[in-house]
């Protein structure tokens, strides 16, 4: 099984496409997860060799059996300010004081590679790994949630914490198109994630992908099999990227790179979109859409403390807005733009 990190110039501007293949019993084995692509502007100039994340590194090498690399402490202090890239909903949500407390968000991502890139979530320009960025973003939305980091190169199963769990997957697992997801011999890591989404034991927020195709679609002869495996799963949410946060007076559209919901009703009913204001952060891609939904799920979970992951998932899906989007269509936007304020509001009250 080979592990490598390579740049792809056009189709995937830059991606940490670490793929290993073993044919065993007519099943493909995936060794290492594949990070979703970011746009070249944010990445090309920023990638440089660097030492491993001192926190993420806790789960690699000699501790490769550890399923969780980091618990709780973040390398940077989460911002308590509503940033310009956030939906105004977030500020409204914070004012009542609940910010994801009691909920655990596990970021399954790259915390150990040498690939870093620049960005700015409003707290100054930083040069971080992909996982460090997604972790920071989720922690800035759900500031009181417990954030855990799971380096996806370990391939060990993801464990759940007590209380509500949210898993953030800002990566895909690509391989040659044409197989069904049940032909894949998943590693313990992805097998555990798929199991949680199937049983509804964790909210799974999955970046939809950056190939401008429908979720599970073929691009360059390849498919994201993690997308395929999560289709129709109870507590999975595919997250696409909008150009910004939409309002009724200023509706927004799909980011050009974002995968769409497509024609499959099972995807449409579990597909949300959120604004990814790359013009403000320098960070583009559905990788930065998924952590927003992870944060929203944590905030909803902190309000409805007895809610199951499936209930939180459905609440986010059922309260999405369509009137803030240009030319809403389920095949593009799925359920619509996630609305935290509506997810927290009652259907009716008397």
């Amino acid at each position: 099984m080979s592990r490598s990190c390579r740049k792809v110039a056009v189709a995937r501007p830059i991606s940490c496409l670490n793929r290993g293949k073993n044919m065993s019993n007519n099943r493909w084995k995936f060794g290492i997860a594949t990070a979703l692509a970011l746009l070249p502007a944010s990445m090309a100039a920023a990638q440089e060799a660097a030492g491993p994340d001192p926190l993420g590194a806790l789960c690699v090498g000699g501790q490769s059996n550890a399923s969780i690399c980091l618990s709780a402490t973040l390398p940077t202090t989460p911002s308590q300010t509503v940033q310009s890239w956030m939906s105004p909903d977030v500020g409204a949500a914070w004012r009542a004081g609940y910010r994801g407390k009691g909920v655990t968000i596990t970021i399954v991502d790259d915390f150990s590679s040498t690939s870093r890139f620049n960005g700015n979530f409003g707290i100054g320009v930083q040069n971080q790994r992909h996982g460090e960025w997604t972790r920071e973003e989720a922690s800035m939305i759900a500031t009181l949630a417990t954030i855990r980091s799971k380096d996806f190169s370990t391939s060990s199963s993801v464990t759940l914490a007590p209380g509500l769990n949210v898993l953030n997957l800002s990566y895909g697992m690509y391989a040659k198109a044409g197989y069904s997801s049940n032909q894949i011999g998943w590693s313990a890591e992805e097998a555990s994630i798929i199991s949680y989404a199937t049983k509804g034991t964790a909210v799974v927020s999955k970046a939809a992908g950056n190939d401008s195709v429908a979720v599970g679609g073929i691009t360059g002869g390849q498919q994201d099999y993690l997308d395929l495996a999560l289709i129709g799963k109870t507590s999975a949410i595919f997250v696409g990227a909008l150009n910004g946060n939409g309002t009724t007076s200023n509706p927004t559209g799909m980011a050009w790179y974002s995968n769409t919901a497509g024609s499959n009703p099972l995807v449409q009913s579990h597909f949300l979109v959120v604004g990814v204001a790359g013009d403000k952060t320098g960070l583009y891609g559905t990788s930065f859409a998924a952590p927003i939904i992870s944060g929203y799920a944590a905030i909803v979970g902190s309000k409805f403390t007895k809610a199951t992951p499936t209930q939180v998932t459905n609440q986010l899906l059922n309260t999405a807005r369509t009137d803030t989007l240009i030319g809403y269509s389920p095949s593009v936007y799925g359920k619509g733009e996630a609305s935290l304020s509506r997810a927290l509001a009652p259907v009716s009250i008397k």
Partner: peptide, 14 residues
Amino acid sequence: SCQADYGDLGTYSV
């Protein structure tokens, strides 16, 4: 108090 229906999340006295 009110009775609030939160859909999938149930009905609560609030």
